[in-house]
């Protein structure tokens, strides 16, 4: 056998490392979307076709705006990384199932354009795009955004009955000076399953926890954010409840009702807008929990998860800066301090 000589091959020349884990943005986004499937199915189960319609419109809307912005700004297509699709799913889950079509489209546009594209695309956006859209809609269209449909099940038609979320009901009662014992609230099991009023994707705590566990198992999210977030909500609302049980709901309701589980596992953990260090993630999670509790207990809105996460998003660069791990071997010497300063 005559082997080819050295000159017969064309070699790729690049710096080490020469191999890669194979995990990329697309595979991670795909896993997150997969993890959201139980929550989506629960939403469709409880809210019927209407919810499915919200999902389809939001995903199509986000992908369409993504394509449009890529074209407009002359950027390479980013559809393949699935981040726009994920934003669509998350946005849908944060909307009432009865949302009118235009609300969904406006939301998609805000998420992709104001939430991401104007900063330079994925990776540069400081705020979670789906949450930017949700808060924008909540402020601009408060009526439509709090038009909660009571779950009627997949079999009924389009006209669900309007009702309040558990947190909303409690807030209203407090506003009227009524004791909580006079307000009718769903029991814990219903909260866990999701048979309550609320956004399409936030109602079933159980389904969301399933997806969250999957993401933890796959190492895509780290425990620090959800544990810090939910843990601090439990502690703060628990203390408030112990002191004034008539006025404040218990920690179990606070955890299971509203968008806490969705927020803690799927929104606050958004990689781009949360810290990169483990300590930073814990600080971030606790910050989200404290802010959420404060808004829910004493603020003007019954729900505070979105505002809390967005506020903490803004603090992320600062948190990263102050939670840098101590470098290996940094026992006594600090290189930076040895370097001369001008």
């Amino acid at each position: 056998m005559t082997s080819p000589g050295p000159g017969d091959f064309k070699f790729i020349i690049s710096v080490s490392p020469h191999v890669h884990s194979g995990q990329d943005v697309r595979s991670v986004m795909r896993d997150v979307i997969l993890a959201l499937v139980p929550g989506v199915l629960a939403g469709i189960w409880f809210f019927g076709f209407d919810a499915f319609r919200v999902l389809v419109l939001a995903v199509l809307g986000c992908v369409a705006f993504e394509i449009g912005m890529n074209r407009l700004l002359g950027r390479a297509s980013t559809i393949r990384d699935l981040s726009a699709a994920l934003t669509g799913v998350l946005l849908a889950m944060n909307l009432p199932s009865g949302s009118p079509w235009w609300l969904i489209i406006v939301g998609s546009g805000v998420a992709i354009i104001l939430g991401k594209a104007i900063y330079g695309g994925l990776g540069y956006n400081p705020f979670n795009p789906a949450l930017v859209a949700r808060v924008f809609l909540l402020i601009s269209f408060p009526v439509q955004m709090t038009h909660w449909v009571v779950p009627a099940g997949i079999t009924t038609g389009l006209d669900g009955i309007t009702g309040a979320t558990p947190l909303g009901a409690a807030k209203e009662a407090a506003g009227l000076g009524k004791s909580l014992s006079e307000t009718i609230l769903p029991d814990t099991l219903q909260l866990l399953l999701g048979n309550v009023g609320g956004s399409f994707g936030e109602v079933s705590a159980l389904a969301l926890l399933l997806g969250g566990a999957f993401l933890l198992y796959r190492g895509i999210i780290r425990w620090q954010i959800p544990v810090g977030f939910i843990g601090s909500v439990v502690v703060i609302t628990g203390i408030a409840h112990l002191l004034q049980p008539d006025r404040y709901l218990g920690p179990v309701v606070h955890v299971l009702a509203g968008g806490l589980i969705l927020g803690a596992f799927f929104m606050a953990t958004d990689m781009v807008t949360s810290p990169v260090t483990r300590t930073g993630m814990l600080v971030f999670g606790i910050g989200c929990g404290v802010l959420t509790s404060v808004i829910r207990l004493w603020g003007g809105y019954p729900e505070g998860v979105s505002f809390a996460i967005l506020l903490m998003n803004a603090l992320t660069p600062l948190i990263d800066r102050y939670t840098r791990p101590r470098v290996f071997g940094q026992v006594s010497r600090k290189l930076f301090e040895e370097a001369p300063s001008s």
């Binding site: 990776g123 949360s274 791990p325």
Partner: peptide, 21 residues
């Protein structure tokens, strides 16, 4: 491609640096 701040590099760095930043 742009860094999406996933934090994988921070977990992986055996010198405890912050490669992303």
């Amino acid at each position: 491609a742009p860094c999406i701040r996933c934090g994988n590099c921070v977990d992986a760095c055996p010198m405890f640096l912050v490669p992303s930043i």
